[in-house]
């Protein structure tokens, strides 16, 4: 029997293409095309509802953003939220992970307990905290008990500073468990023989953590930091829900919320695209950093 002129390799190559093509088509439509459109649209004056063709305006959208008070505020809001969330997240998840690994019982229980808030969706989390931060809610009660005051309202959802703190608390609460588990598995992957060698050399427990565990955790720490940072830059739900349920929008008007409102409420697609591109560039920088960091800092322990 004569076979067609395809070798096994050619046949396999053809099947390889067949298997990857559907994904490539979907990515082209739903990832590559939109990001190019965003670049393109950011140079146009485009209105969502208007039927007139969009007008080319060069850098005007970007120029507007750099002089706009509102945009500057939302950059500051995002920066404050990101710095205020990711630093405590990294520090506390490292501490919690180190503590969990130092006890010899209930390790799994603590990991699961800290992770529990991550099980909820962000909308549900915001809903719960909205009641907790209510003037009559348990946040005020708890703080009053702790500070020994009575009946003081700390304005969790109305004063600018407190409102920002509130969004930070919600985020911190939701993600602390996840990053703790990442650190736990990072610490767990350090071979015990390294600790053993150090103990033979006569180090104490603290030196052991500081000179062995901590330096070897550097890649994990960097990875967690960048991941947390990127996650915080993208924050939307908490701010959106707090503001749509009556809290003042200005202090928590983060970039994503600003993009959403500019496009959907003001119909200014060009301006929203310019904001998206700026956000994209910042996040691209951090993602690139993450990839670079995770490649160069890779450690093999043996």
């Amino acid at each position: 029997m004569r076979k067609r002129g395809f070798s096994m390799e050619q046949k396999k190559a053809r099947w390889g293409w067949i298997f990857v093509t559907p994904a490539l088509i979907l990515f082209s439509i739903f990832s590559f095309y939109p990001i190019f459109t965003a670049f393109y649209t950011s140079f146009y004056n485009k209105n969502l509802l208007s039927l007139r063709p969009p007008r080319y305006i060069g850098w005007a959208n970007y120029q507007y953003l750099f002089t706009s008070q509102e945009f500057r505020e939302s950059v500051i809001n995002t920066a404050v939220f990101t710095a205020g969330t990711f630093v405590p997240l990294v520090v506390f998840s490292l501490i919690l992970a180190a503590f969990i690994m130092s006890i010899n019982k209930f390790q799994r229980f603590f990991q699961m307990a800290f992770y529990a808030p991550a099980v909820l969706s962000s909308v549900v989390a915001a809903l719960i905290w909205l009641l907790i931060f209510d003037p009559r809610g348990i946040a005020n009660q708890g703080l009053n008990t702790m500070l020994g005051t009575s009946g003081v309202n700390y304005h969790w959802l109305s004063k600018a500073g407190m409102l920002r703190l509130s969004t930070i608390i919600v985020y911190f609460w939701k993600y602390i468990g996840y990053f703790t588990i990442v650190f736990v598995s990072g610490i767990g992957s350090i071979p015990y023989t390294l600790h053993e060698a150090a103990l033979i050399d006569g180090t104490n427990r603290w030196q052991n953590f500081w000179y062995i565990t901590f330096p070897l955790l550097k890649p994990t720490t960097l990875l967690v930091s960048v991941m947390a940072l990127i996650q915080c830059l993208k924050t939307f739900s908490t701010q959106y829900l707090f503001s749509s349920s009556g809290a003042p929008t200005r202090p928590i008007n983060v970039i994503t919320l600003n993009i959403y409102n500019t496009a959907i409420k003001d119909y200014r697609i060009g301006r929203a695209s310019a904001m998206s591109i700026l956000l994209f560039l910042v996040m691209f920088l951090f993602t690139w950093l993450q990839l670079k960091v995770s490649k160069t800092e890779e450690v093999t322990y043996m």
Binding site: Y33, T37, A38, K234, I259, A263, S273, S276, L279
Partner: peptide
């Protein structure tokens, strides 16, 4: 990130 392409 999804947030940067949501409008297009």
């Amino acid at each position: 990130p999804f947030e940067t392409i949501m409008i297009p």
